Computed example of a mutant assay.
Amino acid sequence: MSRSLRRGVLAATVLTLSVASLSACSAGNDAQTLGIKPDNAETSVGDIKVQNANVVTQPDLKAKGPAVVTATVFNNGAKDQKLDSITLPGTGQSAELSPAKGAKGPLTVPAGGYLVLGGKGNASAVLANGREAAQDGNAQPVTFSFSRTGKVQLPALVVPANGYFKDFGPEVVPQPGTTPSGTGQPSESGKPSESGKPSESGKPTESGKPGEPAGQGEEAHAGH
């Protein structure tokens, strides 16, 4: 093989490796698209599939308070299933389940349908002490219990309610130094005015009779 041909083969090989490296950098968990919508945990057991499971904590990393479990649950079976509970094994934490706005009763995953947890107007799963139970950045085991399938467990990513998760987070806890509206604290206009103080004429006098000038009682007595 001539020297010029060998150089051409080498250049083509380097170019191929460079393209392959760039392709690898744009795929998988390190893809730039994760800045828009990150990869989330999912698993399937029987007819149930749990997708996009996360534990979303307070947006401020120092704030304590509730967290929420978000997920989409699919039911590929021919019968409805109830979501009985969501727990965090090893923490003693159990989520309070509430139906979507305007709905009543237990959370149900309809046959051939799905149930969305988290987000405005959807069903919710609230962890009262979320910060104590889950640490941001961890993969927190979460167990979903269904009426027919039973327990479905998967590791859910723990993230603060920022960026993509801003609209899926828990109720925000007021931070120190801030005063929530409607606290009932008196405004400047609510302070007693000068006109609200007792007048001088209302003070007890030496005669002991309110509103009577000093000495007037003695003169009246002397006249008698």
Rank of each mutant, 00 (worst) to 15 (best):
P186C: 08
S195R: 14
G163S: 00
S187D: 11
K191Y: 13
T179Y: 05
V172M: 03
S201A: 14
S187R: 12
P180V: 11
G169F: 02
K209R: 09
P180K: 07
K166N: 10
F168V: 01
E194Q: 14
K166I: 06
P180M: 05
K209M: 10
P186Y: 10
E188K: 08
P180Y: 06
P174S: 06
S189C: 00
E188W: 06
G190N: 15
G169D: 02
F165D: 04
G163P: 02
E206Y: 03
P170V: 01
P186H: 09
S181D: 12
V173P: 01
P170Y: 02
E206A: 13
Q175F: 01
T179N: 11
G202L: 09
D167V: 06
S193C: 08
T178E: 11
K191R: 15
E171W: 02
P180D: 05
G208I: 07
V173E: 11
E171N: 13
P192R: 08
P192H: 09
G163R: 03
Y164P: 00
K209N: 09
G208Q: 05
P176W: 05
F165R: 00
P170R: 02
G177F: 04
G196W: 07
P180Q: 07
G163N: 00
E188G: 08
E194P: 03
P186I: 09
N162Q: 12
P180T: 09
G190I: 00
G208E: 08
E200I: 07
T183L: 14
P198F: 05
E206C: 09
K197F: 12
Q185T: 14
S207P: 03
N162M: 07
N162A: 04
S201L: 08
T205S: 15
P174W: 07
V173I: 13
P170G: 03
P174G: 05
K209G: 01
T179F: 10
G184W: 01
P192I: 07
G163Y: 01
S187H: 06
S193H: 11
S207K: 04
E200H: 04
K197H: 10
S187W: 02
K209P: 01
K203R: 13
S193N: 12
K166S: 15
G184L: 03
G208R: 03
S181L: 12
G190Y: 01
K191Q: 15
V173W: 02
T183W: 01
G169K: 00
N162P: 00
